[in-house]
Design a protein around this nucleic acid. Sequence first.
DNA 1: TCTGGGGTCCTAGGACCC
DNA 2: TCTGGGGTCCTAGGACCC
Length: 421
Amino acid sequence: MYALVDCNCFYVSCERLFRPELNHKAVVVLSNNDGCVVARSPEAKELGIKMAVPFFEVREFYDRGELHVFSSNYALYGDISSRVMSTLEALAPAVEIYSIDEAFLDLRGMQLNYDLNRYGHQIKQRIHKWVGVPVGVGIAQTKTLAKLANYAAKHYPKTLGVVDLSAASWRSRLLKKTNVADVWGVGRRTAAKLYAEQIFTAADLAESDAEAMGKRYSVMLQRTILELRGIPCFNFAEQPTEKQQVLCSRTFSSRLTELPPLKEAVREYAVRAAEKLREEKGLARYISVFLRTNPNARFEVKYANSAAVTLPNPTCDSRVLMSIAVQLLEQIYLPGYRYMKAGVMLGDIQPHNSYQVDLFNPDLHSPKSQQLMKTLDEINQRYHRGVTFVGQGFEQNWSMQRQHLSPSYTTSWQDLRRVRC
DNA sequence: TCTGGGGTCCTAGGACCC
DNA sequence: TCTGGGGTCCTAGGACCC
């Protein structure tokens, strides 16, 4: 048996922790650059605000004082997330952290000694008491069914936030009630095709010919069908696997046209990506840079391009990655466009303690480089942006907008800076 | 005027090998 | 008239997730 524990409108719940007067009010959290709505309180959903709509489309609610708005504060959400996860780790035999706001629990064997429904409520109460955010709990034989149970826990108030699908009768009832588009792994495209062949509910999908569907759609859908029948196909992964790629990209606060500020931004992203890579204890051999104008603009000339290179030897040195990123940018930059976004991607990642050096090319992971990067990271862990490269720029006028940012309640960057000033 | 930022897995097709 | 059979690796693109 598996449980899926998922925090309700997580980012909103994090903000409410420190602003309890916003409980029972319409609240949303915006994506970076205050672009789209990425989290909504139930009251905001009632206003008809859909997931991922651009903020300017719902701004009227805010202007009328009916909606409270926050820019995303990932330092806060990351910290609250780790509190939720460590609480879960004390409650379950094994935990797979699936995303910032949800985790699978492996309950193998527990059904013999526990009433799983009661156990689900214990989890919910413990997290509420210790961390303060509301969660939903879904319990079932496979991950896909646990997802479905969790979905039911959130959508049907009668469940009080916990659904246990151990009983076959409950399972088939829920499958019949659930739209096939709400099944984990069925996206918009697949759902549209399924409707066309008269598959409307999760039950319809579960009863379809798994092998034939696998051939017509994909093996992923085939596995989903089996999972809906209670046959596990997706493994439980307690240990996070090493990342295959690391990406840093941002939308600029305003459109950029000239090369110098674009270079600054790309250097900044390369340095951030290199930091993430070192956190992963990885070395990258593949580096790619992309650049694009606004794909949604109707009356604008569009342009998007990317360039990549594979290095002879892998590295995590910010200086190397930064200078290569700028060279790649120069290959794809064209004057005359209003650029909206750029990004740096690192791939072909290998562990830093076991890699092969190409003898005929310089080692980009020399002891000197390692020492320098270690020192850099140590300083920057203590002092936010303590050491930066000149090329990253000082003003960074292109850097994103966050007009509705909450304070760092639980992390100390901003406060520390203020004290030191 | 105004639209995020990460990731994963799978597949088809091309290039190449013997 | 008429040209095999078995592989691997890489990449781009699609679909999905949060």
